[in-house]
Design a protein around this nucleic acid. Sequence first.
DNA 1: ATAATTTTTTAAGCTAACTTAAATTTTATT
DNA 2: AATAAAATTTAAGTTAGCTTAAAAAATTAT
Lengths: 218, 218
Amino acid sequence: MSVAVENFIKAIYKNDKQENDTSTGNIAKKLGISNAAVTDMAKKLASRDLLFYEKYQSLELTEKGSKMALNVVRKHRLWEALLYKLFDMSLHEIHREAELLEHQTSDFLANKISSYLGNPKFDPHGDPIPNEHGDITTDDNSIPLSKTQAGKSYIISRLMSDDKEFFDFCALHGLKYGNRIMVTNQFQNNKMTQISINYNTILLNEDFTNIIYVNEIN
Amino acid sequence: MSVAVENFIKAIYKNDKQENDTSTGNIAKKLGISNAAVTDMAKKLASRDLLFYEKYQSLELTEKGSKMALNVVRKHRLWEALLYKLFDMSLHEIHREAELLEHQTSDFLANKISSYLGNPKFDPHGDPIPNEHGDITTDDNSIPLSKTQAGKSYIISRLMSDDKEFFDFCALHGLKYGNRIMVTNQFQNNKMTQISINYNTILLNEDFTNIIYVNEIN
DNA sequence: ATAATTTTTTAAGCTAACTTAAATTTTATT
DNA sequence: AATAAAATTTAAGTTAGCTTAAAAAATTAT
């Protein structure tokens, strides 16, 4: 399968998981290509049974398409986990490299990486790593920081972003997968969240508290 | 630079190092594409200052082209070294994977891999790994097994091949980079070489003794 | 409900990297 | 040296993956 097809399928998969507006325009924006190119590709992939396509309707992956997306996502996240473990690289850097490597990785090599890492279920962002059959572990107890309560302690379970600025901010303040924080205050109907981490207090706004997920410590 | 261009440049570089017949036909055969495609590409790359091209003449890389080839070769061999170290993979398997990964590796990541491995000068085949400036270490004492003398001991310094059968044979008999062997006999003007390794005696013909390089132990 | 706006599709065209077939040049043979 | 054979180039054509511009459909606003 070509890089273009894999990225196309992946974009639909990821979009679907989050926003639920899998319109051609939206996918075009994500991929940085024209709407016309998306329509074209959608038709081709529909004929290959990778997605359902009806004129003017939003795109949806078939079972086969989903499997393919999960396979690419698996490789992406395994690479992130490997690079993070071996080298001194930031969350943004591992993402950038994985974005390319994911398309040039045999299933054989993916399994080697996975087994070397002890078949991890999550990558360094806290994103779940599908297994080789496409099964994915969901952490149902995970909630965004914006939904937490003042006075409670949590473990960071996911940093859901691709953005360098965000990752730089996280690295600077120790906001890292697995780290412990305490929510000290919620302001303005949870639009602002004050947390304590490593003996420091920081104030986060919605933009960040919606993409930082945590698990309550009990 | 595209994968096609990188592979093209690399093929010329490698061909030049060995056979010295860098004709369009030869490159076409190596790359598995038509002669016409090679002529086409040669013209394009000449206009990009990556190689010298004169109708009906053999191809030659410019300084810029050589640098590019060395950069790809560097990434290839670093990947081989990393995969070999981390995972239980054969020489043929690491080559196969590196063949794809080499084109999707930033200089930044290549340097990370290199430094993780302690900036090795040779990969698991004994092939030299260029440094980030394109400098390459040549082992001048290295000679093919076909040029060795009966009764002397040697260290295997290079297995110069891409061939699975050959690598399988080597793995089976312990013919591995860094391993010690003793040449017990040379027959028929060095067309057949008998060696002793791991208390076993094996007989090798020219096909193999020309691509297995060794260093004399003194 | 109709008009205005936005989104999506269609149509036509481009480029990289190939192909095959024919023409040309080089190399080998006698 | 002439000719046959082999290698190389030229010419024309293909496909994937894009583009822009226009036409058509869907959505939104009044």
